[in-house]
Computed example of a mutant assay.
Amino acid sequence: MPFFNSTIGRPSIFILTGIPGMEAAHHWISIPFCIMYIIALLGNSIILLVVKMHQSLHEPLFLFLSMLAGVDLVLSTTTMPKMLAILWFDAGEILFETCVMQMFFIHMFTGMESGILLAMAFDRFVAICHPLRYSTVLSTSSISKIGLAVLMRNFAVVLPFVFLTTRLPYCNGNEIPHCYCEHMGIVKLACADTTINSIYGLTIAGGVMGMDIALIVSSYARILSVVFHLPTQAARKKAFSTCSSHVCVMLIFYIPAFFSYLTHRFGHQIPHHVHIIVANLYVLMPPMLNPVIYGVRTKQIYVRVLKMFSMHSGFPEH
């Protein structure tokens, strides 16, 4: 396969180099990444299975949790198999078209994760601030529409990345110092003005994820206001408990996401291998930790998972 296709001004293949400066440790680094990926696959599959098997869990919170688990499965599987191939076998070659497709799925499903976290914040807001209207506002039909809206929103805002990336000529080599293809990593190899790409990327980060964060913070400000006015300490404790898992999941997702995004543009003083490691964790930690956090801290999920494993292991339930 030729390196460069001069008729369309771009390489036929890109080379993902892994973690720059840490090539000698790739095999060791792959061990925790592989373990985290296995945990992500098992954890999110169990969440989906438990919610599907138990009709009593077909409630808004658990339906949103199922959406989150599905997104996490796609997000981790979009990146991890290729990442492990690079770390294990130095198999960094990836077709230009495949690289752009991977970029599309990564950005789309990270955006979907943000949208679902917003939907889960809205769920907690209605449950705590307007409990009498909960079943009316968050009907099965409403949840389906919210899920579809999240999907369509992110498809619409991420699709232009594909056109903005494929329109550029690439003559600055074909090596991407990363473990997966993402927008700015590809664009840095272009030999043309990439201002539009940068502006659009910043606009989407600020306009979509920034808006999601603002609405989430607003929801939790209202929730805290209501919780502090609850009549008993037990009621306040229960309300805090129902929200704590969601807050943990949001912090795990948004902190590395914005660190990775902003260091690509402004963090030139940060060692490149640190940025790449954090970027890898950004697509792996939420899928791994989300089912663990919800499985441990959500009683309905925790109890049913224990029952499922007790039945299959043959041990008596306690």
Rank of each mutant, 00 (worst) to 15 (best):
S6H: 13
M53A: 14
S144L: 09
P11Y: 01
E317H: 13
A257T: 14
H318Y: 10
G201T: 04
K307I: 03
M1K: 14
R167V: 15
G111Y: 03
N154A: 00
N290H: 11
L251Q: 01
F266N: 09
E182T: 12
W88E: 06
T136R: 07
G92T: 08
G295M: 01
A239P: 14
D123T: 14
H130Q: 12
F266K: 08
K82E: 00
H312A: 15
T195H: 05
R153Q: 14
N290T: 15
F33L: 10
V283W: 01
S313I: 08
A214W: 08
G70W: 04
S310H: 12
Y294A: 07
I106S: 01
I35P: 09
V137T: 10
M152D: 07
V50M: 05
A149M: 07
M209G: 06
V157C: 07
R265N: 13
V249A: 13
R153F: 06
L63N: 03
L63E: 02
L138E: 00
Y200D: 03
A127I: 10
T110E: 05
P286F: 01
H130C: 10
V278W: 05
R304P: 06
V71D: 04
T165D: 02
G147Q: 02
L306Q: 15
D212V: 11
I86F: 03
L75D: 03
P177K: 05
F33M: 13
G92N: 04
H183W: 00
L65P: 01
Q300V: 04
E93S: 10
H272Y: 13
D72V: 07
Y200I: 00
D123Q: 12
R304V: 01
D212P: 09
V217P: 13
F62V: 04
V71Q: 07
A121F: 07
F240L: 15
V74F: 01
V247D: 02
V150T: 08
I94K: 05
V187R: 03
P160Q: 00
R236G: 07
H58N: 08
G147F: 01
A239C: 10
M285R: 09
P20T: 08
M209W: 11
C179I: 10
C171R: 14
A127H: 12
M36Q: 13
I47H: 02
I252F: 03
M112Q: 11
T7F: 05
L63R: 11
L281I: 12
S310E: 10
Q233V: 14
L306M: 11
I293G: 06
A279P: 13
S12W: 08
I106P: 00
M101C: 09
S56L: 08
I94F: 02
L251W: 04
F105C: 06
S198M: 09
S12T: 15
S244L: 14
A121C: 13
R153N: 14
G21E: 02
I31K: 02
V227H: 08
I252N: 12
F228Q: 15
T79Q: 11
A205M: 10
L87Q: 02
L262V: 09
Q269H: 09
F96Y: 12
